[in-house]
Design a protein around this nucleic acid. Structure first.
Lengths: 143, 143
DNA sequence: ATCTTTGCAAAGAATTTGCATAGCT
DNA sequence: AGCTATGCAAATTCTTTGCAAAGAT
């Protein structure tokens, strides 16, 4: 019942679609999912939830701080569970794999830069795009 | 005639629309422009160029390495002149102002991280979102 | 003259919204 | 019961494409 009460605390009723989508993020081995991917997984699981609902729920969860929305260079929004700590991303442009990292040195430099520019930072993101280890081997179109 | 020959070198004919769009990026005080903004400026300048052409030319210029395309969190693509040196961005979430910076220390850390994760980096981007100096004063919705 | 580019309108992809029905509490 | 959430289809927003007419070399 913890999930249900989590939702209620943020003014969201504990409905089937919401619980399922939240559960999906908590159990999927892929931490980073697009709306379409969430939808497709739900459909495959015989769980019929409309795509519009997926979009609505993802947005609500983002506003509630449960999920974080990212904009990789694909044009589609990608969501991941907000587990507190900030981190940045390595994105494989070939297979789509995403790895996370956190570098305190970079964070410090960011703060210093913001101060120098008199910017009051609210959020920040860093993306490194390239080929992951696996995709460096077979250079010609695997995937 | 330099601009025209620049274009020809990359296999693009030196047409009016292309020269005008290139010139716009070279002279506008706003370095970062969306396709719509380019289109709007051209329309205001009595220069009638179709929106589709703006999109096509921007994409061609990006592929030719003349422009760089960014995806800030807005959902719209933003273009800027490629002047060689890589740099990152501070983006004001209130007024939209964009400031650029380059930090060698951060670049070094990024390389180290990529190596550790065995990623072969092709591109990278860092965005700091927040309030610029001007927008910190009047906290309640200017613009 | 030939091959490229443009404009317009239509098509597409991602996401949002209106509204009647179904679901929580 | 009463108010919120969902599903579906239509609407939006950003961007791309097809095709005939105009432009560049």
């Amino acid at each position: 019942m913890s999930k249900a009460s989590d939702l209620k605390e943020m003014g969201l009723k504990a409905t089937g679609p919401r619980l399922k989508i939240l559960n999906l993020f908590e159990t999927s081995e892929q931490r980073h999912l697009t709306a379409e991917e969430v939808y497709r997984i739900l459909v495959e699981e015989h769980t019929d939830i409309g795509l519009a609902t997926v979009y609505r729920v993802l947005t609500q969860f983002e506003q509630a701080g449960l999920l974080v929305r990212h904009h990789f260079e694909s044009g589609k929004a990608v969501f991941e569970l907000n587990q507190g700590g900030h981190h940045d991303h390595l994105v494989c442009v070939k297979c789509g794999k995403v790895e996370e990292f956190f570098d305190p040195e970079i964070e410090l430099r960011q703060d210093a830069i913001a101060k120098k520019h008199q910017f009051q930072i609210q959020d920040h993101a860093m993306y490194l795009y390239g080929l992951c280890h696996d995709c460096q081997q077979s250079r010609i179109g695997s995937r």
